[in-house]
Write a protein that binds this DNA or RNA. Structure first.
Lengths: 149, 149
DNA sequence: GAAGATTGCCGAATGAGATACGGTCTACGC
DNA sequence: GCGTAGACCGTATCTCATTCGGCAATCTTC
């Protein structure tokens, strides 16, 4: 994982459809060499997968909210319960007063309310505190260049 | 945006490297027809871009935190100030006591502290409240199938 | 209800690019 | 000094993306 790898990752994050020739040119390598490096990045797991970024609004995800989930019991083994709700995009165990933080996308606030109801039904959950997003400044992937700093 | 488009989006989210022939087969269409549909999804903006998913840990992003940012003035025009910090992955204006919620990834807690310091330096910011993630259950893209419900 | 226009699909052609391979150079260990 | 491993380059092949003409179904308009 050197500087060239990081530049490759950055370019691929911006556009994974570009040719290996263009990718190689961006870092001063041949297409073959660039291909080989990217293959190894996938092999090592640095690149988890190639995917498409979908506009949430286009598929019924206009309402975004973060929900702090309070609990009366250990939530460390409840990953499945949260994953079962497709509207939940992220679920994290956190340090602090609440025990789990989840990110939720729904098409309406009524559906958000329904998701909160289903979260509340999860075993051990004692309460929820939802924070609705009014405007998203930006959402972007992790910057590979950070490894430099 | 019908059912076929949603299935195409789901398949592309899982693996954007597969051939249009395979993609078409998954929805009962020819490669050409699948290609045409995907082209239109890009054109409409439903597909924003094709990208690679990078393992945060592999590029120095082991520490994840959410930060509630309190302010004394209107933060609606401060998107640039937050975007200037590459460690900030998301920034949202929220309803509630704080005014901005940001998602931060750094390699160490020391760097997290430094990011908090730089957030504090943004004009109008009066305080921050960081919540450190202990364990991530999952992070996944928005499900196109939600549009069905 | 009929003619025209639009849309979505198929199947084939072609051109570009992914992937594999042989050879060269450098760095490193013995 | 010699052998090995790793990274790169240039080339060759072969898959696949992309384009095109043609057809059927649907919608529009009169």
């Amino acid at each position: 994982m050197d500087h060239i790898d990081r530049v490759l990752l950055t370019h691929l994050q911006q556009d994974a459809t570009q040719s290996y020739a263009a990718l190689g040119q961006a870092v001063g390598l041949s297409a073959g060499a660039a291909h080989e490096r990217v293959r190894k990045l996938r092999e090592r797991g640095a690149i988890r997968r190639t995917t498409v970024e979908v506009d949430p609004a286009a598929v019924g995800g206009a309402v975004l909210a973060y929900v702090m989930v309070d609990s009366v019991s250990w939530m460390g083994d409840s990953a499945q319960d949260f994953a079962a709700l497709p509207e939940i995009l992220e679920a994290h165990v956190i340090a602090g007063s609440a025990s789990v933080l989840v990110k939720v996308r729904t098409s309406t606030t009524e559906q958000l309310q329904d998701v909160l109801r289903r979260i509340y039904a999860i075993d051990g959950v004692s309460g929820t505190q939802a924070t609705v997003v009014l405007e998203t400044f930006f959402e972007r992937p992790v910057s590979p260049e950070l490894g430099t700093g």
